[in-house]
Design a protein around this nucleic acid. Structure first.
Length: 219
DNA sequence: AAAACGGGGGC
DNA sequence: GCCCCAGTTTT
């Protein structure tokens, strides 16, 4: 896939997304969108965890506390119990507590809206920082999670294994007006069509320009 | 028993 | 940039 094809690829994805009954991303993030704190915390929980499990764990936690102040009233080990099935509950609950402490002490209880500030928080990397900005604040950012990266990797748009490289390329070649939607579109596409294992290439509209079309295409 | 799940951090 | 790491659920 040539870099210049990015616009065409976007249009196809946009069209597919428009015709989905209920894009999975809306199910996942319905209450979370535009709430920077929820975006941040559920992202921390999502580490090495399936989306459905992350959603359930996040909701259990948010029912008890949906602000940094409230979160700090819950002992870390109780947070750990609430998010238990997500795995790494010990590490994650400590990370959550630590970050809430910093938010309260240094950021007036608010989640920063700048990538650079978010990255200063231990446990927050590029994916989380970008997601907070784009989902939490509705601002221009490109969030490259495994779904987004996997799709562009298969297309041949990027060769490296690192999502950071994908983000750089998208920032360079994808017009800014598309940045906000590219993540939600590709997350849905990645969950439903370009799945991690046995992707549904037979009805993927990108298969003609994809480097890694699997046998599913001929079924 | 082995694979799948997704991201941060250290080098 | 590449490699390592963590625990639970599903197959």
């Amino acid at each position: 896939m040539k870099k210049s094809d990015i616009h065409e690829v976007y249009e196809i994805l946009e069209d597919v997304y428009r015709n989905m009954d209920e894009p999975s991303v809306t199910k996942i993030s319905k209450q979370t969108r535009r709430d920077p704190f929820r975006v941040l915390i559920s992202c921390l929980i999502s580490l090495r965890t399936k989306d459905e499990v992350t959603l359930a764990a996040s909701n259990r936690l948010f029912a008890k506390a949906d602000t940094p102040e409230k979160m700090l009233t819950i002992p870390a080990d109780e947070i750990a119990k609430l998010i238990y099935p997500a795995g790494f509950y010990k590490t994650k609950s400590n990370t959550i507590t630590n970050i809430c402490r910093i938010l309260l002490d240094e950021y007036d209880g608010k989640v920063p809206d700048e990538i650079d500030e978010l990255l200063k928080l231990k446990g927050v990397g590029r994916k989380t920082a970008n997601l907070v900005v784009v989902e939490g604040y509705g601002r221009d950012a490109i969030c490259v999670d495994t779904h987004v990266h996997r799709i562009f990797n298969r297309l041949g748009y990027v060769a490296t294994k690192t999502p950071d490289k994908t983000e750089m390329e998208l920032r360079k070649h994808l017009p800014i007006k598309y940045w906000i939607r590219i993540n939600e579109i590709l997350v849905s596409y990645g969950r439903e069509i370009c799945t991690p294992v046995s992707p549904h290439c037979s009805y993927c509209r990108l298969s003609d320009i994809c480097d890694k079309v699997s046998v599913d295409r001929r079924r």
